[in-house]
Design a protein around this nucleic acid. Structure first.
Lengths: 134, 134
DNA sequence: CTGAATGCAAACCATTTGCACTTCT
DNA sequence: AGAAGTGCAAATGGTTTGCATTCAG
């Protein structure tokens, strides 16, 4: 009875997010999608992000107050935020050893965890390196 | 030349945050501070939060899109967000073994990390337990 | 065809800012 | 006294919603 149609804007938005190497901001999604659909409206982007999220095809990632979106199904991973250039990367490593169900002092039952690493991304680390001294 | 005065509203706001067991939302700070200062305006809360942050006496914590504030100087710790009641707790344990300077594959130089654990807080875990079966 | 989806503009809402009044020092 | 701080209301800016039009099935 319901519906949910396949449209050019939804396809483009989903593709942009799927092909991105890391999570994107709403603006980045809009800009990149407009490469293919110049008339795309921001409202459609928001509505589609909500739709895709409900369908579990993407999911939001909050980083320093910014809400980014990334495709689901990429397995367990975390994010690296460069404190110099501000870009966010996806890291397929997990520095946490926490079996689901671990109970922490006080009785906190852990079911999931999220880790964000901060530091210099490869590029910024290289620049800093180049600037020798210090 | 400059100034930065000590005022009743600043003292109350700082105390509310300092005495809180975990990070608070702007609204929680406002509500709790109004217990002592009924006429306190929300604008003053925002201005004071910014001021205290610049003075490094408190700092923002972003959790699921919400910005909370907590007192600084509590040492290395992380947060636990109850997926049932939504409350945020402070945990003085660190499940991560990451010396500053650790370099991850690809050349990511880690300088800091943030961990958020999700699950059942003691209270909610107890309720769930009480509901036996399942 | 016919309802779902889109784009635009208006509406919302959390946060910020302008300004006259109040309060520190 | 005089500058800094406060409260209120207006201004912002990101996100959501109403509605007429367009489009998928």
């Amino acid at each position: 009875m319901t519906a949910t149609r396949s449209t050019r804007q939804r396809d483009v938005i989903a593709r942009v997010i799927t092909e991105a190497p890391g999570p994107l901001t709403v603006q980045e999604v809009l800009e990149q999608a407009r490469t293919d659909l110049p008339t795309l409206g921001i409202a459609t982007v928001y509505r589609t992000l909500k739709l895709l999220t409900e369908q579990h095809r993407i999911h939001p990632v909050t980083l320093d107050g910014e809400t980014l979106y990334e495709a689901s199904g990429r397995g367990h991973h975390h994010h690296f935020s460069c404190i110099t250039c501000g870009r966010v990367f996806t890291l397929n490593v997990c520095p946490v050893q926490l079996p689901r169900g671990t109970v922490y002092p006080g009785g906190f039952v852990v079911e999931a965890h999220e880790v964000t690493l901060y530091g210099q991304c490869p590029e910024c680390a290289a620049v800093r390196q180049a600037g020798t001294r210090n």
